[in-house]
Design a protein around this nucleic acid. Sequence first.
RNA 1: GGCGCGGUACCCAAGUGGUAAGGGAGAGGUCUGCAAAACCUUUACGCGUGGGUUCGAUUCCCACCCGCGCCUCCA
Length: 506
Amino acid sequence: MALRFHNTLSGRVEDFQPLEDKRVRMYTCGPTVYDLPHIGNYRTFVFQDVLRRFLKYRGFEVFQVMNLTDVDDRTIANSLAAGKTLRDYTEPYVQGFEIDRQLLNLEKPEVLTRATDHIDDMVKLIQKLLANGHAYSSDGAVYYRVHSFKDYGKLSKLDFTGLRDGARVDSDKYDKDNARDFVLWKAWKDGEPYWETPLGRGRPGWHIECSVMAMRYLGETLDIHSGGSDLIFPHHENEIAQSEAATGKPFVRYWLHAEHLIVNGEKMSKSVGNFYTLRDLIANGHRPSAVRYLLASVPFRKPLNFTMDGLVQAQKSLERLRNFQDRLTRENFPPGEDEALRAKAESELKAMEEALDDNLNTAEALAAIFNLVLEGNTAMDQGRFRAGNRDAFLDALARWDGIFAVLADDDYEKLEKFGLVKGIEASSEVSTAPPRRDSLAVPVGGASGPVIRTILSDAEIERRVALREEARRRRDFARADEIRRELEEAGVILEDTKAGTRWKRK
RNA sequence: GGCGCGGUACCCAAGUGGUAAGGGAGAGGUCUGCAAAACCUUUACGCGUGGGUUCGAUUCCCACCCGCGCCUCCA
């Protein structure tokens, strides 16, 4: 069956076909840079990355645009509190996101750009809406007239006939014709940052940036637009209203929304104390690749219950895959090729692809790859595995990893590069306890940044492994076991093989 | 109240109108100096609850209970 996705607009799973042959125009809602993103944000971003990787896997050319929201109530409030300009305040978080992006193997979108670099285009779009009657000015602000767009509500399927009980009261003090009209341009308030424009002095509303950035780089009709499910209303509903009222064309063909992540069955919030950034997890000894694995392992339309135990399980599952890849690479097999194994590698790869075709069913894709691991390991143990089977198995793993992007055991290499982890020599100084939360919020730009964890350095580990090998040769097993135990406590696992001792970090 | 997602073994989590994938964990075993890795055996007569349709339902229908999200600036 063909590639298909659940489209929020239709409420159904639909076959996917881009407007233009094999070219996919995709817009993904990015982070608001008022702080580092939390793991809930990354659930969505990892989903979007798996999506773009699988589209490319299936032969599509992907052009993705991601925005960085660097002007909104929170960025303004925080920058004022910090006594910084909006740009100075948000810049470290833009850099912090860039580091996280690399740690989580999120491919760089073709365009990754700031909202405030598109103010002129926003003004032009608002002027267009004013000219065609979909917007109106009031007290220096500009509002979108919801009644003027008959399809308003088609995405969120909300009922807009009459006011609903329990609906929140708008907090803006400006005059609007209708309570549901939303702001396109906000009039300047004393002390806040502003832009001098033909609309007057002020700053953009939230929704307009996405319409503008999407259409600027992707044209008036996009193939895919995605984000977290909370954005369906009002954000994406309003984007449709703005864009379609301006162009008269369909804005987006496929709307894909990721369900939320919850923590220990509860909603994540700062007040509950279950709010985590990637750095919080790293400080607690977890690895970015395990985080990515966990976030990618649950299909995007299912709520994901995030737990520390789940993260440990993810790390162990990942270890099984890496061990298998190592074994495939390392061991010698008799010449020839086993037909049954060749067929197995093909069928499991096919099963993986078909699972992902089906609305990105990552859980089922994982099952296929683990079946491959079991088949391979069993065949090796039984002596059925042949040299001629090696490439097909490695290829299947590599293809799988082209989507999941977790197999490379390079977390610590990257963390050291970004200055988040430092390798040292003394086991006693290897840190496990997290530093204070507020120190984690400060993004770092390089080796001079704050170290949030210390680990045993590679050189030191290798020195000790050599010492242990020496002891084993002397058959001094007590000493060898002592070294192994010390390394274990410092987060290093040893594995004795015929070819020598291998080590790896937990 | 409205719209949407979910409730499957100790944990995470697929799935189908025909009798429950996969991963982690536990128990026993093989291998190993001991471990680790790997393999074998084993762990849901049951899929939120109660009805209904059906030869047969976890899968379809109805009702209800519970969790989560949204209902104007939250991924």
